[in-house]
Write a protein that binds this DNA or RNA. Sequence first.
RNA 1: GCCCCGAUAGUAUAGCGGCUAGUAUUGUGGAUUGUGGCUCCAUAGAGGCAGGUUCGAAUCUUGCUCGGGGCACCA
Length: 499
Amino acid sequence: MDPEIKEVLKGIKGNRDFYPEDYAEIKLIFDAMHTVSKQFGYELYEGPILEFAKLIEYKSGRALADETYRLFDREERKLVLRPEMTPSLARLISNQHQRYPKPLRWYSIPRVFRDETPQRGRVKEHFQFNADIFGVDHPAADAEIIAVTTNIIKTSGLKTGEFVCVINSRDLLQNYIEFLKISNHLDVIRIIDSKGKFVQTAIEAELKEKGSSLNEAKEHAQLLRTVWHQDPQITKVYPEIDKHPNLSSYLNKLTEIEEQEVKKAMEEANLDSAQISKLFEFSLMKGKPRDVIASLRALDVNEKITKAIDNLEELITYLEIFEVAQDCEFDMSIARGLDYYTGIVFEFLDRTGSVARAIAGGGRYDKLVEDLGGGKIPSTGIGMGETVLLSILKALNRTPPYTHPSQIYVGIIAENVIQETAEIVNKLRKSYSVLFNPFGWKLSRQLEDANSRSIPLMVIIGKRDLEENKVTLRDMKTGEQEAILLSELELKIKEKLSL
RNA sequence: GCCCCGAUAGUAUAGCGGCUAGUAUUGUGGAUUGUGGCUCCAUAGAGGCAGGUUCGAAUCUUGCUCGGGGCACCA
């Protein structure tokens, strides 16, 4: 074979082929997305895969722009393969939202692209469910988005306790930082957002000092972080850690180390000791929504912050109404990377320990449409790639085995009954998926064909039966069959398939 | 961008300096002209790419490509 062709046949790195069995797996998730979106009254839309590079750069910040696939059109204008849907969506809304009564509830399952190194739960192209509400800034809208996402995750096969939605309010965090009279917001938010990393970095450095190799130190520090993340109280025994005596000594000190390191980083950001202890305490607040609200209420703060807390509390009320509160936690330390979030932010995390990435993430972005010249339109929404959810489901063995779409195989015995058979096939196809291979094959081959595709029922049509207005209906699993009148065929099929 | 592991028919694998590259399964055709899953026969199909070492490379080696995993990043 031509070597060049051989290379081409391998495809582009990180991009995916979906054979029917593969597509069937994703379709499970797609179906959940469509079903739930419909239940909540969301309308389907789509946008172009290509956008001007400027739109993405303008909106998503540079880090994201660096990872996009770039190309040029004939006029040499810079284009990108969309790395996410929100910029395109904001463009659609900004252009024509006046045509529609508010609020808008829209969803889509766009294929999006990022030119980054593939890892578990991360590929260069994937399908990313998006659901957004435009035109209301009521917390019930944020709660609804969370409810939609939770329901999709559950419909796909995860159960309560196997995932969690962690929620925070950027508004609250920002106002609290201002209240403490801290000036360099962004640095401080970054410190809080990446809290968990400090522990890893510190332990890694210490292990190296104690003589571990670079790779070993990295690996061990990460192991500790992962365990700690899954099980903060260290309630279980971890054999993989106990194997290394120098690691197990860290297990009970992780919380302490984190505090030290975070405070050190805050000091370096020029915070005074009063600010540090208050902010640190604040960042530790997390857990069941009602509990966190209670702790927040105990803080002595100003009116702006009280309002933000009221807002959070109202959010919980709606989470309870939508029956998803048990899947949610508040965590005052999450901030999320994207610059455009303004209020409630949230991410859905795996709790089964199989994938260390977020299943979904979203939040309120009230300024984005306005920034694109579309007027003041408060907005909230979610993005959920299919890859992380799918790899969790696979790890749990929750994906069903592949089945051929056809329910009935119509077999024909090679005599002159083609015309009559075609009529029967067409009639059946009005209600069922029917496979029919009228290529002059012998019956044995047709039986084998039906069998190899695991099609449950077979209708066999031959001249002798047909003369009495009958056909044979065969159950492929049991091998039982009977000759039945044509007029009763549909009824019998219905009975058989509903078993 | 960095690190680790890997790459032989569609799939799963054997060979590890001297092969007509073995096996299983899958595909196709048949044995079997009104009844499949078994069996049998036939047939098709492979060492990612480029270079180096060597008399000789699927086998050793280097680079690249692709795949898996991790870091950083991102979410």
